[in-house]
Write a protein that binds this DNA or RNA. Structure first.
Length: 979
RNA sequence: GGGCGUGUAGCUCAGUUGGUUAGAGCACACGCUUGAUAAGCGUGUGGUCGACAGUUCGAGUCUGUCCACGCCCA
């Protein structure tokens, strides 16, 4: 480089800015966040829109356990993007985050910290680890005897609050703004009280009832167990084949049109079971409607008479071999569906039972005819509901048969296996007994095998007052994004059974019901429940466990049945889904800042069955409308290979880990770049891939900021800056108007995409705008004007005005997504215009100026861009031959005869060198064929014969003509003379 | 096994009511530039549109079957 060129460089207006190329997000983000916190940005935003239309996104509460990971981060950031966008659009959009605090996982962690190791690798010590006095308090509790419910609940609350703190910090570090210092917690007294209020409403409207339902039961611990509390282990037990005789063969022969000989031969359904002790509760046998069932005739070894066994055809050979019967005959066979409703006699209890159909019948084991005892199994129970079968469960809490089991009264169920087998053998019903080892559930605490036992549970009747139909109607009024959410939730609603809301646990909201000590009648009374509601509002649900029963109800409460005045309180608590399903009341209605129904619920697709459905039902039942206007769902994160994320394999990225590696804005950009309605592949690599688009966007801003270092955008007039550099739109060059046309198209599209929650389209549009339209074309062309023109020349100010408009609009467009970076950019823009709002998040979303959108202009420039790329292609050919370097060295001849094309090229002939960054353009009329590109023309490139201007680098005729400035072109001489 | 989805270049996405050689950006390769410089620009390579049938003059686009994956159930 010669000294002379260095001098000329000083006469240029090269970009200047403190906005660094390197993002350093990991370091900068915490500083920006601190500033937001200090200035209470969230409440400033809220205050700004105080009287505007409300937009309520109601946060679904995450569980207060474990660290925030990529899945939870995805959800919260999506919410944050929506809320920030709405706030910038001028809506009053408060965001009240919530936490689900009750429930089994926390209770488990507290009760048995050793077993339930946190898979998230949590930094929080478990309770036993935290016990500092040397006494391992928790392990003592593990026995379940020493701790009172209140003590356990206290520990649970501590645990939940600890994780709420952790998650709060992690969400905040992702840039999510909200009511972080006043979130809603399902353990807040006000929340607990609202849950009771919903229950009270349901009771008053008659939705609540009580009935038997089988649950896992440990007869050693005398307690109910949840699925998560079971440990499966191999267990040796009986495997028995029993015949259930058909008494009235007349009915059968008529119905099935079997030969009349059947009337004389005893027929039996042939069942198999591994739990003979449940046979006293047998009320049906299930067959598969589509399977073939065989009528197998053989000779009874004892009676020496023919008998017929009915069971699945596919198992005949296998089973007869097991029985050791070689001489048998399949009389005929028919579909299981035909057997429906046939009756048989219980083998040892006086009871007539029936055949039912069930899809779960399989041919893997047994006979294809399934012993059904609705009191002792979930599938049996569900079938029982369909056929209206009685739920028999003649077993007490210690596992002893009750009087209902007749001769077996007082026998323990495990002992009953043998006794029942013996009895069946004696009566000739038992054809085979073997022992087999199979996987069987055991109590996680005492390790003893558990049973299914039916107990009284509380239910919400889904069909009362046609609630199911109403809910289905409401579903149609809701906007589901994506649309298939509607069919998904509808089919679930159509099929779902009544909702069992009682749980035999401790960490939750108690069900406010009392039992008369005299007649044991449950007291389900709206007034009494409302008393509890008020009590909870003041003192929380803990009071249920600390106060005597008499203080939990209005004085002088009497039993409705017997008039007794003494009661015991319910021990069960609510299903946690009932709690979170009550959030529409506890949060959206209770909080005056919010508004029912909420505008948006936004959760993963699993919540169609969960929170959405279980919020919809209580809301429809108590308020006759859906709690949400729009429901948006996202898919689940999965591995790059498309498989389910496995915590144990370490696939699950933690929020802290991501934030400290790539920064929150990269995570946010990644989230904005994907179609989240589908499954979402994720890995650290996939995240890191977003660093590049980020840099591109960042550099686009850097270019604009750099070229506005000497620009004042503070508007003039009315006390504004008189020295403003802003120029009127009418003075803009056509290319500037083209750029603004593109900008306003972008604003228009992006606004629509944000409104439709299509953030990946927002991202795409922004990105292509930055890379293709601005960086590759407009900014490139602009360099000459910005760098080489006189500093305050009108033409340069015109370009800067356009840049300023683009900059200030674009930064607001990205703000909901790149919240930190946008804020950083904003602080630099405030140097150009100090009148701007202190934070980008306090500014308004840019509005489309339709007067700046010009279809004709756009089409003309589309052609110019085509010419540009065809010329570039030709230049590239010469470059490959080493004949030319930079395009600015090229002299270009455009040949055309095309109708309109020639004319078009001539119109822009003067501007084309600048637009194509070449030395010169000559448009020449000439017949061209064949045409290679999209334009009816051909291109010829030669290297310019002119000299290069040392200042502006253009090759023009005038260079060297002026003896006092031999290295400059005439334009540059005129400019430098001013200095 | 059932319900609801998804499957277009290595990645993220476009592909209108079925119609000419399936597009874009990134990545990659090769260059240019060195006045956005740990930046910027250009050109190029790359796809049997999950598979197989079918409807049609013609299918990524419609129909069916299958495969893979996810969510929720069983």
């Amino acid at each position: 480089m010669t000294e002379q060129t260095v001098d000329y460089q000083k006469t240029l207006n090269l970009p200047k800015t403190d906005f660094s190329m390197k993002a350093d997000l990991v370091k900068k983000e915490p500083l920006i966040r601190q500033k937001w916190e200090k200035e209470d940005l969230y409440h400033q935003i809220i205050k700004k829109n105080k009287d505007k239309t409300k937009y309520i996104l109601h946060d679904g509460p995450p569980y207060a356990n474990g660290d925030v990971h990529v899945g939870t981060a995805l959800n919260k950031i999506l919410k944050d993007i929506v809320v920030k966008f709405k706030a910038m659009q001028g809506y009053y959009a408060p965001f009240v985050p919530g936490w689900d605090c009750h429930g089994l996982p926390i209770e488990h962690r507290v009760m048995n910290p050793v077993r339930s190791k946190s898979p998230e690798g949590t930094a929080v010590p478990t309770l036993s680890e935290r016990t500092s006095n040397g006494v391992n308090q928790m392990s003592r509790w593990t026995s379940g005897k020493d701790a009172t419910t209140s003590q356990i609940r206290e520990e649970c609350e501590k645990y939940a609050r600890r994780y709420i703190e952790i998650q709060r910090r992690q969400f905040q570090s992702l840039g999510v703004l909200g009511e972080w210092h006043n979130p809603y917690l399902t353990l807040d007294p006000s929340y607990e009280s609202a849950v009771i209020e919903v229950f009270s409403d349901l009771v008053k409207k008659g939705f609540i009832y009580r009935k038997l339902k089988p649950i896992h039961w440990c007869m050693h611990c005398e307690t109910a167990l949840a699925e998560a509390e079971l440990e499966y282990a191999d267990e040796k037990g009986p495997s028995v084949y029993v015949k259930f005789p058909i008494v009235d063969t007349t009915e059968m022969t008529q119905k099935l049109k079997t030969p009349n000989s059947a009337l004389r031969t005893p027929h039996s359904f042939f069942i198999w079971t591994t739990t003979p002790w449940t046979l006293p509760a047998n009320v049906a046998v299930a067959v598969h409607p589509d399977l073939e069932y065989a009528f197998v005739e053989y000779t009874n070894a004892d009676t020496k008479r023919p008998e017929v066994l009915i069971f699945a055809e596919g198992l005949v050979e296998k089973v007869m071999k097991l029985l050791g019967i070689n001489d048998y005959k399949v009389l005929f066979k028919l579909k299981g569906a035909k057997l429906e409703n046939l009756q048989y006699e219980h083998p040892f209890i006086k009871r007539t039972c029936q055949v039912i159909l069930a899809d779960y019948v399989r041919l893997e084991d047994g006979t294809g005819v399934v012993h059904t005892a609705p009191g002792h199994g979930i599938e049996d129970y569900e079938s029982g509901l369909k056929y209206n079968l009685p739920v028999l469960s003649p077993v007490d809490s210690k596992g002893r048969f009750t009087t209902e089991a007749q001769v077996f009264e007082g026998v323990r169920v495990w002992d009953a296996d043998d006794k029942i087998c013996q009895m069946l053998k004696d009566s000739g019903h038992l054809l085979l007994r073997q022992d087999m080892v199979h996987s069987y559930p055991h109590c996680w605490r005492c390790k003893k095998p558990v049973i299914f036992r039916s107990t009284e549970q509380w239910f919400i009747s889904v069909d009362n007052h046609s609630a199911r139909l109403k809910a289905l109607e409401e579903v149609k009024k809701v906007r589901w994004v994506p649309e298939w959410g509607q069919s998904r939730i509808s089919s679930m609603l159509e099929q779902r059974p009544d909702w069992c809301i009682s749980r035999q646990r401790q960490w939750g909201v108690p069900i406010p019901v009392f039992y008369c000590t005299r007649c044991h009648e449950p007291l389900l009374d709206g007034k009494v429940i409302d008393f509890v509601k008020e009590l909870f509002r003041k003192q929380g649900a803990n009071s249920w466990f600390t106060k005597p029963t008499s203080e939990l109800m209005p004085p002088d409460t009497k039993c409705n049945k017997c008039g007794g005045g003494e009661f015991t309180k319910e021990k069960d608590i609510f299903d946690v889904w009932f709690e979170s399903g009550s959030s529409f009341r506890a949060v959206v209605i209770e909080n005056n800042d919010l508004q029912f129904p909420a505008d948006l619920y936004l959760e993963g697709t699993d919540q169609h069955r969960g929170w959405f459905q279980l919020s919809l039902l209580p809301s429809v039942m108590t308020r006759s409308e859906a709690p949400f206007k729009t429901v948006l769902t996202h898919g689940f994160v999965k591995t790059p290979e498309g498989d389910k994320i496995s915590k144990s394999k370490g696939d699950l990225l933690l929020s802290d880990e991501m934030v400290s590696k790539v920064g929150a804005d990269i995570i946010r950009l990644w989230i904005a770049s994907i179609d989240f309605t589908d499954d979402i592949p994720v890995s650290m690599e996939i995240l890191e891939e977003k660093a590049d688009p980020y840099r591109k966007i960042r550099n686009t801003f850097r270019y604009m900021l750099g070229n506005l270092y000497d620009f004042s955008a503070e508007p003039s007039g009315s006390g504004g800056n008189p020295k403003t550099d802003l120029v009127k739109y009418s003075q803009l060059w056509e290319i500037d108007r083209w750029a603004l046309n593109k900008l306003h198209r972008l604003i228009k599209d992006v606004t629509l995409y944000y409104d439709n929650f299509e953030f990946y389209r927002v991202f795409r549009e922004i990105y292509e705008f930055c890379v293709v339209e601005m960086s590759a074309f407009y900014f490139d062309v602009l360099k000459d004007r910005l760098y080489t023109f006189a500093k305050d020349s009108p033409d340069r100010r015109v370009a800067q005005t356009a840049l300023y408009e683009i900059l200030t609009a674009l930064v607001r467009i990205i703000a909901p997504i790149l919240s930190f970076t946008a804020e950083e950019i904003w602080s630099h823009i405030r140097g150009i215009n100090p009148k701007l709002e202190p934070s980008v998040h306090l500014s308004d979303f840019p509005e489309v100026d339709n007067s700046k959108i010009d279809q004709g202009l756009e089409e003309r420039w589309q052609k110019i861009l085509q010419v540009r790329s065809e010329v570039a292609r030709e230049i590239e050919k010469l470059r490959k031959e080493d004949k030319i370097g930079s395009s600015i060295e090229a002299d270009v001849k455009l040949y055309s005869d095309g109708a309109g094309v020639l004319e078009f090229l001539r119109t822009y002939e003067k501007d084309l060198p600048m637009l194509l960054k070449v030395s010169s353009i000559k448009v020449i009329e000439k017949k061209v064929s064949p045409v290679t590109g999209a334009i009816q023309m051909s291109v010829e490139i030669t290297k310019s014969g002119h000299q290069k201007c040392q200042r502006c680098w253009n090759y023009t005729e005038s260079v060297g003509k002026n003896p006092s400035h031999p290295a400059l072109c005439s334009r540059c001489i005129a400019i430098t003379d001013k200095y």
